[in-house]
């Protein structure tokens, strides 16, 4: 695990973020992180990507709150399908 390179760093990102690296691998990962600015930027943008995915369907304000009400045509279609089933 010594001499971890950018390629391995990138491969281990998910396991690192999920806390699944053993202590030795984690130490090597963090050592590389300290020494490699491009990998620090990569980790930051990877984390930001995960955050952005989690909020991509969230309302940004009261004007675009996701309606919770079922559209009327959906309600009718479901009840009709139930009668036919």
């Amino acid at each position: 695990m010594e001499d971890l390179r950018c390629r391995e760093f990138t491969d281990f990102l998910l396991a690192y973020l999920d806390g699944e690296l053993d202590p030795r691998a984690r130490a090597a990962f963090e050592e590389h992180l300290q020494a490699c600015p491009p990998c620090r930027d990569y980790l930051d943008s990877y984390r930001r990507t995960v955050e952005l995915v989690g909020t991509a369907w969230s309302p940004c304000g009261p004007d675009d709150a996701i309606p919770e009400d079922a559209p009327e045509e959906l309600v009718h279609a479901v009840l009709e399908a139930r009668r036919r089933a």
Partner: peptide, 23 residues
């Protein structure tokens, strides 16, 4: 040699982005 072919660059701070556009 295992180094990035195209090293990443920092992203803009979240606070500077227009949220609706980013979503």
């Amino acid at each position: 040699d295992g180094h990035h072919r195209e090293p990443g660059k920092p992203w803009q701070p979240a606070a500077r982005l227009e949220q609706r556009e980013v979503h």
